[in-house]
Design a protein around this nucleic acid. Structure first.
Length: 257
DNA sequence: ATCGGAACCG
DNA sequence: CGGTTCCGAT
């Protein structure tokens, strides 16, 4: 497997198993905690997308792509959140354009009001100096994994939900997580550690709370211990992962079948 | 519609 | 720093 490590990391551990993935700082903090800093626009967008608010903004066809269905309404919502009553799409879009240089977003050219999150870059941008290879393996929100492991439609929303509500959805560390094949997730999260050879050991996960990183537990899941704020049935995702075999393999890697 | 410079703000 | 406000150019 080639190394996807970005040079900005300054370090590329040879063991791909132990490569580290970190999420932006805000993802580890409850958004509502006292003294937490002001909400950022991309955070806000993910929040709306995660809620499936739908009217003003919704996910597009590609991973990370979103379409602003009602620009002025979105601007109004943003303005309300920030206490800027004169917010409009002209101004909001300027803020979005500042994200281009930061590599948080880019424009989907040709598609009106359509932008795309640069999820993996997001991680790098917010962690200019990533720690080098601690012993824990890739902390990835479980639901982010599950969005790739299961083909359920709302799974992408789940992934984002886990970012918006880190308290409710603890982060999961895939402990030897063996994908059936080189998995799409490795393309979308270049820093994700997962082997490219085949394997089926998908049931053992350990879980790390972003709120209290000392809390870690390993489990062979039949149940997800934390309740989702969306009320979305996590258990079903896990079950769908566990009834693996041919169906699982097919679902996980549709393009390779 | 989309872009990015420039000045400005908390 | 992360926008907000304004605006001329494409």
């Amino acid at each position: 497997m080639e190394c996807h490590c970005n040079s900005s990391l300054g370090h590329c551990p040879s063991a791909h198993w132990s490569r580290t993935v970190l999420f932006p700082e805000w993802a580890y903090k409850p958004a509502w905690s006292p003294g937490s800093r002001q909400v950022q626009l991309w955070h806000f967008l993910l929040e709306l997308l995660g809620r499936g608010e739908g009217g003003a903004i919704a996910w597009g066809s590609e991973w990370g792509e979103f379409v602003i269905r009602d620009p002025e309404r979105l601007a109004k919502l943003w303005g309300e959140r920030k206490g800027k009553p004169h917010m409009n799409y002209d101004k909001l879009s300027r803020a979005l354009r500042y994200y281009y240089k930061k590599r948080i977003l880019h424009k989907t050219k040709g598609k009106r009001f359509t932008y795309k999150f640069n999820f993996s870059k997001l991680i790098l941008v917010n962690y200019p100096s990533l720690p080098t290879c601690p012993q824990i393996t890739a902390p990835v929100p479980f639901s982010m994994l599950s969005s790739h492991l299961s083909v359920n439609k709302p799974s992408v929303d789940m992934a984002v939900q886990s970012i918006s509500h880190p308290l409710l959805l603890p982060y999961c560390i895939p402990k030897p997580l063996l994908f059936p094949q080189a998995h799409p997730i490795q393309r979308q999260f270049p820093l994700f550690s997962g082997p490219s050879h085949s394997g089926t050991n998908l049931s053992e996960f350990s879980c790390l709370s972003p709120v209290n990183p000392t809390i870690q537990f390993t489990q062979t899941f039949n149940h997800w211990p934390i309740k989702s704020s969306t009320g979305w049935p996590h258990n079903r995702i896990i079950e769908s992962r566990q009834d693996r075999g041919k169906a699982m393999t097919k679902n996980a890697c549709p393009e390779t079948t």
